[in-house]
């Protein structure tokens, strides 16, 4: 998920973790699907690790990655 690579993911919307009251920061996050594991950059709470998977990512690139993995 290239677009979400380091540097490109920024907390422009100023989203805050409501539990820790800390702004989210980009961080390498491990994902898994169809017996594959890989990392991508997501916004995440530096303390409790609550992360954010935005809508455009879920409906766009994630779908592509999912179908590629499903076809493997």
């Amino acid at each position: 998920m290239t677009e979400y690579d380091e540097g490109k993911v920024k907390n422009t919307e100023n989203i805050v973790c409501d539990l820790c009251d800390l702004p989210l920061e980009p961080a390498k996050t491990v994902l898994t699907y169809m017996r594959s594991t890989f990392a991508t950059i997501l916004l995440r709470c530096p303390k409790c690790k609550q992360c954010y998977f935005p809508e455009d990512l879920a409906l766009g690139q994630a779908v592509e990655v999912e179908s590629t993995l499903e076809e493997k």
């Binding site: 996050t29 491990v30 994902l31 898994t32 699907y33 609550q50 992360c51 998977f53 999912e66």
Partner: peptide
């Protein structure tokens, strides 16, 4: 919305 990818490290 939803996705199929699963987030491993999460709160």
């Amino acid at each position: 919305y939803s996705h199929r990818l699963q987030i491993v490290e999460d709160v």
